[in-house]
Amino acid sequence: MAHVLIGFAEALPAAEVVFSLLHAGHRVSAFARTKSLPLARLPLEALHVVPAPEHDAKASADTLATLMHGDTAPDLVLPLDDAGLWLTNAAKIAPDRIAGAVGPAAEVALDKAAQVDAARASGLAVPDTVLAGGQAAIGTIAFPAIAKPAPAVQVTDNQLVKGDAHYLTGEADIGGLQGQLAKSDTPYLIQPLIAGQGEGAFGFATSDGVVAWSGHRRLRMMNPHGSGSSACEALEPDETTRQRVTDFLNHIGWRGPFMVELLRDADGTAWFMELNGRMWGSMALARRRGLEYPAWAVAMALDPTFRPEPPNRAGPTTVRHMGRELLHLLFVLRGPKTDMHRANWPRFSRSLAAVLKPARGESFYNYDPAHRFYFLKDTAWTLRKALKR
């Protein structure tokens, strides 16, 4: 069994990853920007504080490189979010010690423009996309639209930056975005705003093809304006989706766990949104159904011939994040910020009934029988963090 360093520990799937690795017999350490995290309550070998890459990217990479050096260093590092994926590659750790994307695969995982090109070439439905940047005029856009940074993260002046998405409802918004692009080196993807339900296709890519398929459908977003899920249900990807996602993964040379985000519209078209090329937020749902993607990522890093056994999918089909569910209610109460969100805004009574519906502990994110009350601590931390903003 291996000693695995994971990070960033602030990432949404962190606790589920710890539980997966511990159950597989591994020792786990984590790196984070602070030690004031609920994850510190779990049986970690160590919780290492590294300089925040958002403040000093080089110091952060140098610190991680030092952590992975020496006789007592962890055997492997497993990135949990985009910042962690960038950091593990920036630290110049040997590729065979990274239980995640490296080299060109990591570049694609952090480049949404490259993902869009690969998805289109693989037959996935891709919204009409304009790549905008610099002084060039944006051109004609169909409203409403959304503009999102092409890089998942990027380094500017030695600071790791994650840009914000912008809703575009008219020419005035285009003018504002054009002014921002002229001052920045960040390209943006502009796509029509599609109404639909979020889905995810998960699996484990090997040289023999994709195995251990699974997926989710979003039931509620934490923030109905657009965010990660607060509740989701199991969904098996259909054969067409599986084939096109497989072609996409082959196109980019992907190996190991993956999550492809899709948006299914009223006509049934599953539009490609992006690839999550690291651990993803709804890992709890996969794990409850026997799909131990984090442990499998480590197993493949230790033995490239590893193939997971077919899981027993007997667990709950719906999983909820208690803290995010409570925040969902607050967002619903505040109401929509724009007219374009008003038509599909959730009814508070319906959301309240769904959030208050009783459920067993295993039906919540970050629940583990060996650490029964951890998910309550995580709930409190989630609420405190959100309400301080």
Rank of each mutant, 00 (worst) to 15 (best):
E171V: 07
G133T: 09
I146A: 08
G139L: 07
G133D: 09
Y167K: 14
A150M: 06
I174C: 11
G175P: 08
T169K: 08
I138Y: 05
H166A: 03
D173I: 11
F143I: 12
Q135H: 09
A165P: 06
G139E: 13
G133N: 08
E171C: 07
E171L: 13
A145E: 09
L168I: 10
H166R: 02
G133W: 11
V153P: 00
F143P: 06
K148V: 11
T156R: 06
A137I: 02
A150I: 00
V153R: 00
G163K: 01
A136N: 13
G176T: 07
N158G: 07
D157L: 09
A137Y: 01
G163V: 02
G134T: 00
V155Y: 02
A150T: 01
A172T: 13
A142R: 15
V153W: 03
Y167W: 15
T156A: 10
Q159K: 12
V161E: 02
F143K: 11
I174A: 03
V161F: 05
A165D: 05
A152R: 07
P151I: 01
T169R: 14
A132S: 11
G139C: 10
G170D: 14
K162E: 04
F143T: 10
A132N: 02
T169W: 11
L168M: 13
G163P: 08
Y167H: 15
A137M: 04
Q159S: 00
A165I: 05
V155T: 10
I174Q: 10
G176R: 04
D173P: 14
G163N: 06
A145F: 04
K162D: 00
